[in-house]
Nucleic acid binder design. Structure first.
Lengths: 247, 247
DNA sequence: CGACCTATTGATACGTATCAACCCGAGTGG
DNA sequence: CCACTCGGGTTGATACGTATCAATAGGTCG
């Protein structure tokens, strides 16, 4: 696997998340300051990026790939508390140790900043702080929506919600790909899903077959899902049909 | 009931949350700017402060009292997604409508700011933005810890976790009240607890009796709980015995 | 080919929800 | 003063949903 081809120039002008990461609103001068304290780092799929309790020496933006944030109890119970996609931020200024386990689920490239200099920079470059605040508030909304899912939704609704979540992003990316039946590729395994949704892997599997038998979705292998009727799926998700996006 | 006695002077120097709210790091000049766009508002226990979908014309700090943030599905299922205590912030800059229902559970006093001027001020007064970022990140951590509780903990662990959460705050406030058995007063009803924990009111009740029969807690009326052995309660909560505070 | 990993399916156990009855203290009004 | 109601809380019987344990299927890789 070639990991570095996309981003190994370390050049912000070709960065795929330039418009959405913490640096989104920076001008050239501010970018230059960030450049002085940054470096890239890559991780293989499945590799641990950091563990709960680790010293938080760096903070980082996800440039490519997908990572997860999870809490684990001693007896093995695991709850995913965040899904980190390109442009998402890892770590928090003002904290010494990490609160969660961070794991790469696909190959991941991070744009890392030394924490201490980054904190100083935050105070002097308001554009970064401004963006970080927006991102934190967005994540807070997402976390709260997820609390509703975890606390009050049935297994079937949870699966439908997850599919809608992925569908919204994927289909938006495809732009005007309407007309043909929307098809999404699941970026995560059944086990990851179960940890995300607060279910067991068996229940996830059963709900997939249930939705398939009821004609809500069509399965093509383990990772490809076709959705003949998005409205139908939405109504299965238990969410209000109006606003209320999940992420 | 007298609502206004504590804070009706509108004077920041006597404000009970001056040290912890969004204005915590402001100097006198910055405070004066905030003062121009602020006003107080009070709500009665049980009263709705705002509903999901309402236009977000103001943002606010809780000065006194307790409020809840919750999401409700059409069929009535309710999940509390935040508990708002004095100094906590309501609303978010950059968003037009409210995402959650906000309800006063006790009498509540808010220090309100017009949203638009507040957003402008945010860009020009970095101390406010800095503080708001810290608060948002703290709430994000709290929300994520709560996700673990909702997704993976048993009913008994949920109740124990909630009691520990309240105990940590109350007992800290009492300072060095060690020696006598710690006693906490529940600020919320069984129903509110059930919405907080993703349970039904009956299950909450049963777990209370279960913990009582096992000697983990002692009940004195509906709201007073004595905790003879904090370590014991902690071990029932399913949390790591080390760091990992819930709020 | 066998080894292994992920996913599916089945049988059963267990925990929590649901529905219903009852309790209790606080108001309220006769 | 007592009867009544009302809201919050507890307790009980039962239903239902998801977890658990176990077996099987399909794919990939050595």
């Amino acid at each position: 696997m070639k990991l570095r081809s996309a981003v190994d120039t370390h050049d912000c002008s070709t960065c795929p998340v330039r418009e959405r990461a913490v640096c989104a609103r920076c001008d050239d001068v501010e970018l230059a300051r960030l450049n002085k304290i940054k470096f890239y780092k890559t991780y293989r799929a499945g590799q641990s990026i950091a563990l709960r309790g680790d010293a938080l020496d760096v903070v980082a933006s996800v440039v490519t790939g997908t990572a997860t944030l999870e809490r684990v109890i001693e007896d093995g119970r695991t709850q995913m508390v965040g899904l980190l996609l390109p442009s998402d931020f890892i770590g928090r200024p003002g904290r010494e140790t990490l609160q969660y386990d961070v794991t790469a689920v696909s190959d991941v490239t991070l744009c890392c900043f030394m924490r201490k200099p980054f904190e100083t920079l935050l105070l002097e470059v308001p554009h970064v702080q401004e963006r970080l605040l927006q991102m934190a508030l967005d994540e807070l909304d997402a976390a709260r929506d997820w609390m509703l899912l975890l606390g009050r939704k049935t297994a079937r609704e949870k699966i439908a919600s997850l599919l809608m979540l992925i569908a919204k992003r994927t289909i938006n990316i495809d732009g005007e790909a309407m007309g043909d039946t929307p098809c999404i590729e699941l970026p995560i395994s059944r086990e990851t899903m179960s940890n995300f949704l607060g279910l067991t892997i068996e229940t996830v599997s059963r709900q997939f077959t249930g939705l398939r038998k009821d004609g809500v979705i069509e399965l093509d292998g383990n990772r490809l899902v076709r959705i003949p009727d998005l409205e139908r799926l939405l109504s299965e998700s238990g969410d209000d049909t109006d606003g209320g996006m999940l992420f």
